[in-house]
């Protein structure tokens, strides 16, 4: 069958996951004290930090009466990939990612609550192993909660790809770097699983219409699974926070 061998005949992926399984997600809120909110998130070997400042008064040029201006900056650490590369801030790819982040997060934030103000969100990729954008959205969601900014719902992002098993199409959830590099299509979805709405949809290659639905629904399923994990992390953090807060923030 066409396409790279991403699924073994036993139905396992190259790293041992089944098609519908996420990578291991570990996260922590409130990792810095300086920003108003922060979070660290690992999705497999992809590791990101997110920091949130605000809301604060917007600079004159950007300020609108309609709502808060969400300002995003996505960047990758020099050491984030196997081959070390000096990455200037604000290169084209980062700019595009920043825009995509902004689109997803603006959909989640109740922007109408803070006219004439601004929220700054920084996402730094420490280690990239596929799906850095998704991890960035998920981490930023946590950081926003940590900052106490009212959200409509969790913004969760997840990717999905296509593979073949015994000639049948089988979508893969949460695509890692190896699978990405194999050249298949990668569909990235950022959504508010609570409301079922999609904030951003992006696809790396052409995909035939016949398969779009199954791949999309698998990615959406991934977003819902991630929401559960994030929600648990928030609850754990808060439970911890009530008892330890004074000890931690000296």
């Amino acid at each position: 069958m066409p396409g790279p061998d991403l699924l073994s005949s036993q139905g396992l992926r190259l790293d041992g996951r089944r098609p519908n399984e996420l990578r291991r997600i570990r996260c922590k809120l409130g990792v810095f004290t300086q920003p108003d909110g922060s979070a660290y998130l690992e999705q497999g070997n992809t590791k990101v930090l997110a920091a949130v400042y605000g809301p604060h008064q917007a600079s004159k040029s950007k300020s609108t009466t309609e709502g808060v201006v969400v300002n995003c900056q996505y960047s990758m650490a020099t050491f984030s990939t196997g081959e070390r590369k000096n990455r200037p801030r604000g290169d084209r790819k980062s700019q595009e990612m920043s825009l995509h982040l902004r689109q997803a997060l603006t959909a989640a934030i109740k922007t109408e609550l803070y006219p004439r103000s601004q929220i700054d969100i920084y996402v730094e990729v420490l280690q990239a192993d596929g799906g850095a954008y998704c991890a960035g959205v998920n981490a930023a969601s946590l950081a926003l909660i940590d900052a106490g900014i009212p959200l409509r719902a969790y913004a969760c992002a997840c990717s999905a790809s296509m593979a073949w098993r015994n000639g049948e199409p089988e979508p893969l959830l949460d695509v890692g770097h190896v699978e990405e590099a194999a050249g298949g299509v990668v569909l990235t979805v950022a959504s508010l699983p609570n409301t079922g709405s999609i904030a951003l949809l992006e696809m790396s290659h052409r995909l035939h219409m016949d398969y779009f639905k199954v791949v999309l629904s698998r990615a959406m399923q991934g977003c819902r699974d991630i929401e559960i994990i994030l929600d648990k992390a928030v609850r754990d953090h808060l439970a911890e926070g009530w008892t330890k807060q004074d000890v931690v923030t000296i």
Partner: peptide, 12 residues
């Protein structure tokens, strides 16, 4: 160049 590659490996 020599490159170090780290791959995830899930045990079930």
């Amino acid at each position: 160049n020599i490159l170090k590659i780290v791959r995830e490996h899930y045990l079930r």
